[in-house]
């Protein structure tokens, strides 16, 4: 954990692609951190869901990823950078039901094509960019100030 002079808390987590047995542990830790600092429970659930979906995407599709949680008095910023195959067509990937999941992923209860749309639904701001063959970057913002929320 780091704290900058801008009153900002920062946590970094590394995710290993293909590590299905530990999938979800980082999101569980993120949820615990947010509970410890007393964030509103409805916001915690949204942040936890978005984190979990993002974490599962790295486990399922990428080689590795770095998840960063930044907490400011105004918002939660969840940034995820992965090294992996990237996404050829982001518009298609954002459609509910579109999935390139394997049978192994479906046996884990995932791969229904709901992940990225569900991250967007739970975020106040969501940016995604990807370079096919290199990796994908997600920036998820969840506002703590009620007036800023969507």
């Amino acid at each position: 954990m780091m704290m900058s002079d801008k009153n900002e808390l920062s946590h970094h987590f590394e995710i290993n692609g293909g590590d299905f047995s530990n999938a979800g542990r980082i999101s569980t830790s993120i949820k615990e951190i947010l509970q410890e600092i007393g964030i509103d429970s409805s916001i915690i659930v949204r942040a936890a869901i978005a984190s979990y979906e993002a974490e599962m995407n790295v486990v399922m599709y990428a080689q590795r990823g770095v998840f960063t949680l930044n907490i400011t008095p105004e918002k939660l910023l969840l940034n995820l950078e992965d090294e992996g195959p990237g996404i050829e067509n982001i518009d298609l990937a954002m459609k509910e039901g579109f999935s390139t999941a394997t049978d192994e992923m479906r046996e884990m209860g995932f791969g229904a094509g709901m992940g990225l749309p569900n991250i967007k639904k739970n975020a106040d701001k969501f940016d995604i960019s990807s370079i096919p063959g290199k990796g994908t970057s997600l920036k998820i913002t969840i506002c703590l100030d009620r007036t800023e929320r969507k």
Partner: peptide
Amino acid sequence: LMSDVLAFGKPGILLLTGLSNAQSVRTANI
């Protein structure tokens, strides 16, 4: 499908599932 539970579930839910791996508990906790 945990994807659907994450998309359509709500806090306080009683989850019925046939998925018996640890992801069911992680999803329920989330």
